[in-house]
Amino acid sequence: MDLFDKLYDEDETVKVRFVGFTTEHVRYDFGIVFTNMFFGKPLVVCMQTGRSALLDATDLKNTDSIQKAFNIQSKKEAEELSSFFEESIPFSPIAEQYD
Rank of each mutant, 00 (worst) to 15 (best):
M1P: 12
D2P: 06
F4L: 12
K6E: 07
K6Q: 04
K6V: 15
L7D: 04
Y8W: 10
Y8P: 00
Y8N: 14
E10G: 01
D11P: 00
E12Q: 15
T13D: 10
T13A: 03
T13V: 12
K15S: 11
V16T: 13
G20P: 02
G20H: 05
F21H: 05
T22A: 13
V26I: 12
V26R: 09
R27S: 12
Y28V: 05
Y28A: 02
D29K: 04
D29S: 10
G31Q: 12
G31H: 02
I32C: 01
I32V: 14
I32R: 13
I32D: 08
I32G: 12
V33M: 07
V33H: 14
F34I: 08
T35S: 15
N36L: 04
M37W: 04
F38Y: 13
F38W: 11
F38L: 02
V45I: 15
V45W: 03
C46E: 12
C46T: 01
T49H: 00
G50H: 04
L55F: 13
L55C: 04
L55M: 13
D56Q: 03
A57L: 09
A57S: 15
L60V: 02
D64Y: 14
I66W: 01
K68M: 07
F70Q: 06
Q73M: 08
Q73A: 11
S74H: 06
K75F: 11
A78L: 06
E79Q: 13
S82D: 06
S83A: 15
S83H: 08
F85C: 05
E87F: 03
P90R: 14
P90T: 05
P90H: 11
P90A: 11
P90Q: 08
F91Y: 15
S92W: 01
P93S: 06
P93W: 03
P93M: 07
P93R: 15
P93F: 03
I94L: 14
I94V: 14
A95V: 10
Y98G: 00
Y98L: 09
